[in-house]
């Protein structure tokens, strides 16, 4: 570790001791509670009529949950930006190409 830090000081801060960059176990449990609450809200749409809010609420909750897990449980928020690039490049391309492809079926046909 120390040798690495000496020769590559400019890049190093994210490599060593990711534990310190992450969160405490209590923090993780708090995150899990938030996720549980959001899931409960999601499931409640099955029982309670949300009207026009139904779709937006579900989609927003899904996206927020996704990013909470990715950012905190998967440490992406604290880790080197390169990891974010690797993952979000794939995610971005996936959303882009598949949404466009589905759109050609749904909206632009005929």
């Amino acid at each position: 570790m120390t040798a690495a830090t000496e020769t590559h000081s400019e890049h190093d801060h994210s490599h060593d001791d990711h534990a310190q960059h992450g969160m405490s176990n209590a923090g993780y449990i708090r995150i899990a509670l938030i996720l549980a609450a959001m899931t409960a809200l999601e499931v409640s749409t099955y029982y309670v009529d949300f009207g026009a809010l139904f779709m937006p609420v579900l989609i927003i909750l899904m996206v927020v949950k996704f990013f909470i897990v990715v950012s905190y449980f998967m440490h992406l928020k604290f880790d080197n930006k390169l990891f974010s690039f690797c993952f979000y490049a794939g995610l971005f391309l996936a959303v882009m190409v598949y949404v466009i492809a589905l759109a050609t079926f749904k909206f632009f046909a005929a």
Binding site: L93, V97, T104, A110
Partner: peptide, 15 residues
């Protein structure tokens, strides 16, 4: 990544 449907112009994709 944003040009693939030019292979499908004759398939009736819509204008």
């Amino acid at each position: 990544w944003g040009v693939w449907a030019h292979h499908m112009f004759a398939s009736g994709l819509g204008p």
